[in-house]
């Protein structure tokens, strides 16, 4: 494992298995998150982003199984850890912020108690006063009056609830914060506030972060590296510059950018990517994007594309050779 990385996911595959079918949710993905940096995982609903996040903290639903690969966190493969040791990582070294602030807080517990719970679990030696002190500090950190620790979740607005959830996640100053679409459920003005707060706290605490989102604007604002996920695969990854600039992109990434409304262009509709994601119970043999790709070639249906690497920029498409250069001949 590279010393500079806090988390390395290698060749991770996850399936959801029921009596009737096997859903291939994640298929051999590789992610490396550098210390104190933020990795953005983008992709549409059902691409396997949340499944990836849940595999990291090992909280997959009962039907979910990791079928291969490793998840190394600070040199330790999390998939090898026994459950009780894994528990000492959750909330303490790796924390997670869930998507919906309305349902992620226990309605019958005061927010202070909920923050205190995580602190107490991971710091059993702390006295009551110390825990309370830390609860107040944590609340102040996310911009909520410490005196409100005695209030219940229903007395907070959506944005405030999400702040509380972030406070819970950061209460033990984790090394890695997984944020699963933390602003999706909030309205736009609050989104910006919460996002800036996350960014600010990340910089202040030196937390590494895995930011899951389908909003490319968020990625541009706070991520250092990006992975574009599609049907359980990372089809393109690199630094923010690699993805947002340059000419060579995976057709899916192009499609994603094409579907953002452009303020400068006149009277141009955002271009949606036609079609739907392939059925994860029955993935195509070749490239997973072939059915929706406007550049689709014969080879795309038959063979899974190889990884093309140029510097930090990686993509997985038959249009490019292994060095990331566009293959001229096949164009069309």
């Amino acid at each position: 494992m590279n010393e500079q990385n806090i988390l390395e996911i290698k060749d991770l595959s996850v399936i959801y298995k029921t009596d009737l079918e096997t859903v291939k949710a994640v298929n051999g993905i590789n992610i490396a998150i550098k210390k104190k940096s933020t990795f953005g995982l983008v992709g549409e609903t059902g691409a396997g982003k949340t499944t990836t996040a849940r595999s990291i903290i090992r909280l997959l639903p009962k039907v979910g199984h990791v079928t291969g690969g490793s998840i190394e966190f600070e040199g330790q493969n999390l998939l090898d850890l026994p459950e009780d040791e894994m528990r000492t990582y959750r909330g303490n070294k790796i924390a997670m912020v869930f998507q919906d602030p309305m349902t992620s807080l226990n309605p019958v517990m005061s927010v202070g108690d909920q923050i205190a719970e995580t602190i107490k679990i991971h710091n059993p030696h702390l006295s009551k006063e110390d825990v309370e002190k830390r609860v107040e500090d944590t609340l102040a950190m996310v911009g909520i009056l410490p005196s409100r620790k005695i209030d219940y979740p229903h007395q907070f607005s959506g944005g405030m609830k999400q702040r509380v959830i972030i406070a819970i996640a950061l209460a033990c100053e984790p090394d890695l914060l997984i944020a699963d679409e933390p602003t999706t459920a909030l309205d736009v003005t609050i989104q910006a506030q919460v996002l800036m707060m996350i960014k600010d706290l990340r910089d202040r605490l030196g937390t590494s972060m895995l930011m899951i989102t389908h909003d490319l604007g968020i990625v541009a604002k706070i991520c250092d590296d990006v992975g574009v996920m599609y049907a359980g695969e990372i089809v393109e990854s690199g630094t923010v510059q690699d993805i947002f600039e340059g000419k060579n992109h995976h057709p899916y990434t192009e499609g994603l950018f094409g579907s953002i409304p452009d303020l400068k262009a006149t009277a141009k509709r955002p271009q949606a990517i036609p079609g739907l994601m392939p059925d994860p119970t029955n993935l195509p043999e070749g490239c997973v994007f072939v059915e929706r790709c406007k550049y689709a070639m014969d080879i795309c249906r038959k063979e899974h594309p190889q990884l093309s690497v140029s510097g930090t920029h990686k993509l997985c498409c038959h249009l490019f050779d292994e060095n990331g250069n566009r293959k001229e001949a096949n164009h069309g």
């Binding site: 903290i57 909280l59 009780d84 528990r87 000492t88 990582y89 959750r90 909330g91 303490n92 924390a95 997670m96 869930f98 919906d100 349902t103 992620s104 807080l105 226990n106 309605p107 019958v108 517990m109 719970e117 995580t118 679990i121 991971h122 959830i165 819970i168 996640a169």
Partner: peptide, 28 residues
Amino acid sequence: EVEYVEAARAGGSGSARIIISHILPNAM
């Protein structure tokens, strides 16, 4: 199945704690 139980698990709570401090009070 609710999210706050999921969130509590992600915060490192064990089964006993989840039942006693999150599930039972809500079922009370």
